[in-house]
Design a protein around this nucleic acid. Structure first.
Lengths: 154, 154
DNA sequence: CTGCAAGTTGAAGTCCGCTTCAACTCAAGG
DNA sequence: CCTTGAGTTGAAGCGGACTTCAACTTGCAG
């Protein structure tokens, strides 16, 4: 019971639904061995990957980008603490930037919407190149560069 | 040219695609008069609504919730600065909370992933009731309460 | 009055991150 | 052995936020 984990066990321990784990595997974010009967068996190190995935999602990073990051881990050996630290470092910067933008948004909210002006072009809130992107999914751009605003996906 | 705006003008001024504006209208987030020829004409006050919508989205709020908020504006008169301020105030708290959680996540990232531990249950990062929810779309819960983790949509 | 950009509609498509389903097969306790 | 719960697959569905398309109508400049 502790060489490897079944999908149910990994699910319980990570808090991620089995269906999601299979989905992650399809996308190449995690890997599993198979038993003779074709059932998945996960190495314990996959727990760390799953944790990394979930935490990264909270930073607002897409599964595709997370996959790219995970792909940069050494394939030959089990990733070390430094390997993980390296990945985390990049996220940290994005997180910091996100925090900065949200803080600015809040401050602007006080000074701008708070006063009822909210007049788009005059308003610092309405600065496209500054948008907190990567928040929602959907929406690719219709216009090449929409002139004024947060360029969708905002 | 300045009593009301065509959809193209509103789009240009707000930076929101015409298709999105029509979509917002279907959802009841904005309103438009019609010309004799059935074309939309927007009052200039709609600009403020659109701005509010886009800014709210950046705070991570769904269109449905934004609609509810906008519905609480007085229907009889043009919303005043205080009306807008009241709406913004609620958002401000959510924004502050979000900032708090992201900051915590970043700090934990330093102390936890940074060191390579990342062991889920022991880790403060893996605290479900604390998750930065409302970040992504998709994913309703499969399990009623998934035991340990960010309960999807994280 | 004509020509053409801009507007209209409903239906369908897209992307993301999963979940759900049906129809099975596997693994392990009694 | 048998039952039962856990696992397997591919295909389809969902929610959110739009975009795209086709087929057509309006509005305005020249």
């Amino acid at each position: 019971m502790h060489e490897s984990l079944t999908i149910g066990q990994l699910s319980t321990r990570s808090g991620v639904a089995p269906s999601a784990l299979r989905y992650y595997e399809r996308l190449g974010l995690i890997r599993a061995e198979r038993t003779s009967g074709n059932q998945r068996r996960y190495a314990r190190t996959e727990l760390r990957r799953v944790a990394f995935i979930r935490i990264s999602q909270q930073v607002g990073i897409s599964l595709e980008e997370i996959r790219e990051a995970l792909d940069s881990l050494p394939a030959s050996r089990t990733p070390s603490a430094e390997d993980w630290a390296r990945l985390s470092a990049a996220w940290r910067e994005r997180l910091t930037e996100k925090i900065r933008l949200m803080t600015k948004l809040r401050d602007d909210l006080d000074g701008c919407i708070g006063c009822g002006c909210l007049s788009l072009r005059r308003c610092t809130l309405y600065n496209p190149d500054d948008s907190l992107s990567g928040e929602g999914p959907g929406a690719r751009l219709m216009l090449p560069r929409p002139a004024v605003a947060p360029a969708s996906t905002a």
